Simulated assay, not measured.
Amino acid sequence: MPYTSAPTVVSSIASQSDADAFRALNEEWISRLFTLQEQDRAVLGDPFGRIVGQGGDVLLAREPGSGTVVGCVALLAYPGAVFELAKMAVAPAAQGRGIGRQLIAAAIDRAQALGGARLFLGTNSKLAAAIHLYEEAGFVRITRDRLPVTDYYARADTLMELK
């Protein structure tokens, strides 16, 4: 099914089919560019328990009309009103339409609505387009010692925080 150029609709995860789309979108890019790790499998396999149930959210970009999920982003909650922007993916056929920008803006708004005082992310230097989007949204690079977690993805060689 071809993707339209109409704006997408962003909403929170609501069903098992949403969870399946979230997992599939992320498994595709992580497996293609890196290695799917156990922490990936745990979060992607149970977004309601591992993300939503912990105070976070998963936002999905949907095609208008069909409701097909074409992108996603997660907000993982940490103590101290800290959130991580994670697991952002846009279906390859839907890339280049501003969906990533829309997801980042929606995630920032949702983190604030959830009471977030700090928003960080980890990415990889191979993902130059994603880093550019994060910088456009106001994220700046930080060092690993600024992370609120110690056991963080080895592939995350670029760490950022919203100014």
Rank of each mutant, 00 (worst) to 15 (best):
A93M: 08
W29I: 06
G100Y: 04
V73G: 04
V52P: 08
A14K: 08
T68M: 07
E28Q: 10
Q39G: 07
V9A: 03
V82K: 01
D57W: 04
P64E: 08
G49D: 08
Q16F: 13
G55Q: 00
E84V: 13
K87I: 08
E63S: 02
A81N: 12
G98V: 13
R50Q: 12
K87R: 05
V82D: 14
A106Y: 00
C72A: 15
L75A: 13
V58T: 15
I104T: 12
V10T: 15
S31E: 03
S12R: 03
V9K: 12
K87E: 00
D18R: 01
A21H: 01
G71C: 01
Q39M: 14
L33K: 13
S17K: 10
G49P: 08
Q37Y: 04
S31Q: 14
N26I: 03
L75C: 09
Q95V: 11
Q102E: 11
M88S: 06
Q102H: 04
V9F: 05
D46Y: 05
R62S: 05
A61L: 06
A107T: 01
G98P: 14
D20F: 02
R97F: 12
E27V: 11
D40L: 10
W29H: 02
V10Q: 05
A94L: 10
V9Y: 04
I51H: 04
A19R: 05
P79M: 12
A74R: 01
G80P: 06
V82Y: 09
A74W: 07
P64A: 10
Q95T: 01
A105E: 04
G49N: 12
E27P: 07
R23T: 02
I51P: 01
E28L: 07
V69C: 15
V9G: 11
I13C: 04
F83P: 01
S66M: 10
R101V: 11
V90M: 00
V58G: 15
S11E: 05
A105H: 05
A14L: 03
F83W: 02
A89F: 01
G65Q: 13
G53W: 07
A89I: 03
R32D: 06
V90T: 02
F48L: 13
W29N: 02
R97W: 14
E84I: 07
L85K: 09
A93F: 08
G71V: 06
A14T: 08
P79F: 07
A21I: 08
T35W: 00
L76K: 06
R62K: 14
P92I: 15
V43H: 14
F83S: 00
M88P: 03
E63Y: 07
V52K: 07
R41P: 11
L33W: 15
E84Y: 14
E84F: 01
I51C: 11
D40E: 08
I30D: 00
F83N: 05
